[in-house]
Nucleic acid binder design. Structure first.
Length: 821
RNA sequence: GCCGCGGUGGCGGAAUUGGUAUACGCGACGGACUUAAAAUCCGUUGGUGGUAACACCUUGAGGGUUCAACUCCCUCCCGCGGCACCA
């Protein structure tokens, strides 16, 4: 008997798979299944065993789906644009394209090492003109439908990377890449109108099979909160010129009287409002501030601009603010209340102004205490005024609230709102935490934005037939101060205006790489098609994605962007679905020595020596067996050898088998086989891959122990169930059993429910809920019989003797519990 | 602060709707083979008491519901993750 030598087997089968194009997709399929891995950014780091986890998982899944008779689309590609390649280019002087190309080659080799069935004929690369031509085309579709627009806006600016950052790229006020403090800068930038889809992005989460965790993260990120916008009137201390309105904030109601809308989720606390606070950036601040306060106010505004980011991250934020010496009227009781400015009010949320109820809001309480502003309690747990040491944020009975006194605060909320609405002083609104998606980057290595600026015609979109707008070759990739390095290429910048034929200039910013990855899932089935971004028929057949597999780190980034893209394209009637992925699975991360496995932490385990010693199938098996796939898990060096021993057992069992030695079918083995098929199939469906492996181990152990009574079917079933996990080994042993065709052309085994059930069971006998005996009985045993047997047991009698039996509880096929007094 | 997930042997973990807690694997211990080691194979392995049969205890802590709780409810502790002055 030959030894199990994974090296030889694995190389042999990978070669065969390549030669026979075993992994090519049947794009004309009638039974399509689209499983997509989040495509990698080809960094220089290479794959370690941590990366394997997700790829092994998806490969097991598609191999299983294939054996179920599906034509599987399982493509792979490269998210090749982006900052790291560009930074490497600046540091090492290598062209980003070369750098990316080299990494990509290595990545591909390492991915193939896993033994995964990727269809490389549909490979995509976002940095190639054949791809980004369509990224630009999609941009133009959004632009023409007012979903892409340009505006001057305060943006997050990293002074070290000299670029604008999206909210997603800021962690605790610092740049995700370099750790520098992020500052604010005003630039004209491109945005995608993602906020238009805020509601469907939340509501449609209901209809997709995604992890609850991701759904909650997205909901929190979008941050929808319903409330009321209440109007406060304010007198202007002296006559002022009319100012341009920003949003709906500023308009004159009467001469010298202004309206300040305020957003609140707690209209029930209106009577407790003792002052207003405006964001320092609020446009009315200039109008309202009295002459004597001018200087103090403008210096506070300056300070806010500079210090905001640093203050934001400090633990205990001491409240600061300035009284602008103006007053407003509380609409419910016409009380004159002071107006302040403070940086704790955000200009971008709600109306940029808040009503302050120190008695019932923690922040307002702290502010009022510091500046000695009045605190009026309007809700009380008892219905009487209590001494407040801190803000009371619970519900209770209304007090100090005029006609609303005595009722519950939940009811007051509606009643006060209605009362205000009747007087036209309030309206119901919804606010969202997230902002439109800023896609401009002042960088070289990205997709050029297909827009031309002309002095006469203004913003002109590039004609679709002129796409792609190619990224020019330049020598210096370093970003200029606040400008893309593309500004250096006059060949690129200077262009004839498509509108008037005059001289014009191209947009020099490039797109955020998340734009590339927001639509890539549409490209794969059409990757071979040159004249369309995605073919209508192929898209109909293959999309949406049936299973999407990748890490959770994209929960509030990519996974929102690509949902937005699907919704936008659906609205433009370019596709007929609005959720890109029906099922999402997030694999957990692998830890080693207490930290996430990564090159920078110096704790990576390379698969190469493990491949040499134990083989790819053993690593695959361990990656699954180590724990639930969605869980973060610590790598163990003992794990792979454990699975290797198991595979070796399988090898020995199958290679030493010599046709049926026993004519009598063994009933217990029969039942075990069907039970195993059932367990493995059900666990696969639930992605419980760790228990799939242990079920196969148990099955193998039992077969080994009864190897005198094996039939070919027992072994074939084992190989079929094992095939998705250990494809090389299974192919080899399948051949050894005399099969000419590949095991992956076989059907997934089916079990018979009646055979999966045991004929005999161990009936558990409990007395007062404690196990006292176990007796083997017929599985179909009825309560009467079971009771008889139970009471006949000596072990049971020991505990029932001299006691009254109150009742017995019988669980068919499981146990009987005798309750005594 | 708010939201979410989790806490089970020496370790990774298992336990469809409440129904035998600790499957499977690792490690450890004992044995076989061997001059020896590795590899392989066999056995033992939650804790306490007991020669043993067996008994009692045990799923972060404490209560509760139930014939029966890792599973459901309440209070609390710890760990991880997300958001964070969002009104």
């Amino acid at each position: 008997m030959r030894q199990y030598s994974p090296q030889k087997i694995e190389q042999k089968w990978q070669k065969i798979w390549r030669k026979t194009r075993a992994h090519q997709t049947n794009l004309e399929s009638k039974k399509p299944y689209y499983c997509l891995d989040m495509f990698p950014y080809p960094s220089g780091e290479g794959l370690h065993v941590g990366h394997w986890k997700g790829y092994v998982l998806s490969d097991v899944w598609v191999r299983y789906k294939r054996m179920q008779g599906y034509d599987v689309l399982h493509p792979m590609g490269w998210d090749a644009f982006g900052l790291p390649a560009e930074n490497a280019a600046i540091e090492k002087g290598i062209h980003p394209k070369k750098f990316t190309q080299a990494n990509l080659k290595m990545f591909k080799k390492q991915l193939n090492d896993i033994g995964a069935m990727y269809d490389w004929s549909l490979e995509i690369n976002t940095s190639r003109p054949e791809y980004y031509k369509w990224t630009q085309w999609i941009f133009l579709q959004l632009y023409k439908n007012d979903l892409a627009y340009r505006k001057k806006a305060p943006v997050n600016w990293c002074p070290s990377c000299k670029t604008v950052l999206a909210n997603e790229q800021i962690i605790a006020g610092k740049c995700e890449r370099c750790g520098q403090d992020v500052t604010t800068k005003y630039l004209k930038q491109w945005f995608f109108r993602i906020t238009k889809y805020a509601d469907p992005l939340i509501d449609d989460l209901e209809k997709i099979d995604w992890p609850e965790k991701v759904k909650t993260m997205q909901k929190n990120w979008i941050g929808r909160s319903g409330g009321v916008e209440v109007e406060f009137k304010a007198k202007v201390p002296e006559k002022r010129a009319f100012l341009t309105a920003r949003r709906r904030v500023l308009y004159w109601t009467k001469p010298k009287e202004l309206t300040i809308p305020v957003f609140t989720t707690r209209p029930d606390t209106l009577f407790g409002t003792t002052y207003l606070v405006l964001a320092p950036e609020h446009p009315l601040v200039k109008v309202l501030t009295t002459k004597d306060k001018k200087e103090e106010v403008s210096s506070y505004i300056e300070k806010t601009k500079k210090e905001r980011e640093i203050e934001r991250i400090s633990e205990e934020k001491e409240k600061t603010g300035v009284f602008i010496s103006a007053y407003a009227l509380n609409p419910v009781n016409n009380q004159k209340i002071p107006i302040w400015i403070s940086d704790y009010v955000l200009p971008t949320y709600g109306t940029g102004a808040i009503m302050c109820v120190p008695a019932h809001d923690k922040r307002d309480f702290a502010f009022a205490k510091k500046f000695k502003l009045p605190i009026v309690q309007v809700i009380s747990p008892t219905g009487k005024e209590t001494k407040l040491k801190e803000a009371y944020v619970e519900e209770g009975k209304m007090i100090n609230s005029g006609e609303f006194d005595g009722i519950k605060s939940e009811q007051a909320e509606d009643k006060i709102t209605d009362w205000l609405k009747k007087k036209n002083l309030a309206r119901q609104t919804v606010n969202y935490r997230f902002r439109d998606w800023l896609i401009s980057r002042q960088r070289y290595w990205g997709c050029p934005i297909p827009i031309i600026f002309c002095e006469k015609c203004g913003e002109v979109p590039v004609d679709e037939k002129d796409l792609p707008v190619r990224l020019p070759k330049i020598k210096d990739y370093k970003p200029l101060e606040g400008e893309s390095p593309l500004a250096r290429s006059s060949k690129f910048v200077d262009v004839v205006c498509p509108g008037c034929g005059g001289m014009a200039q191209r947009e020099i910013d490039t797109m955020d790489t998340f734009v590339d990855s927001a639509w890539y899932f549409l490209r794969y089935p059409s990757a071979h098609i040159r004249d369309k971004a995605f073919d209508e028929e192929l898209t109909k057949r293959w999309l949406p994605i049936d299973a999407y597999i990748g890490g959770i780190e994209h929960a509030t980034g990519h996974l929102i962007f690509f949902r937005f893209m699907a919704k936008a394209l659906k609205d433009l009637k370019l596709i007929d679905f609005d959720e890109p992925a029906q099922r999402l699975f997030n694999q957990g991360m692998i830890y080693y020595k207490g930290a996430k496995m990564s090159k920078s932490k110096g704790n990576v385990i390379s698969p190469d020596p493990l491949i040499k010693k134990y083989g790819r199938d053993s690593i695959r098996g361990y990656e699954l067996f180590m724990g639930p796939p969605e869980q973060d898990i610590e790598w163990s060096d003992q794990g792979v050898p454990g699975v290797y021993r198991f595979l070796q057992k399988v090898w020995n069992l199958v290679t030493s088998y010599q046709s049926a030695t026993s004519q009598q079918p063994n009933k217990e083995l029969e039942q075990l086989m069907h039970g195993t098929i059932k367990k493995v199939t059900e666990d696969l469906e639930r992605f419980h891959l760790n228990t799939v492996v242990s079920a196969l181990m148990e099955y193998t152990n039992q077969l080994t122990a009864n190897n005198q009574q094996l039939s070919t079917e027992h072994l074939e079933t084992l190989l079929l169930l094992l095939a998705p996990i250990a494809p090389h080994l299974s192919c080899e042993l399948w051949q050894k059993l005399g099969h000419k065709e590949s095991i992956f052309k076989e059907k997934w085994p089916k079990y018979k429910e009646e055979l999966a059930k045991a004929e005999k069971i161990e009936l558990v006998i409990q007395v007062n809920g404690k196990v006292r005996d176990k007796i083997e009985v017929e599985a179909e045993i009825q309560e009467e019989k079971a009771k008889e047997i139970a009471l006949a047991s000596q072990k049971v009698q020991k505990f029932t003797e001299g006691k009254k039996i109150i009742k017995t509880i019988f669980v068919p096929g499981k146990l009987i519990n005798i309750v005594v007094d």
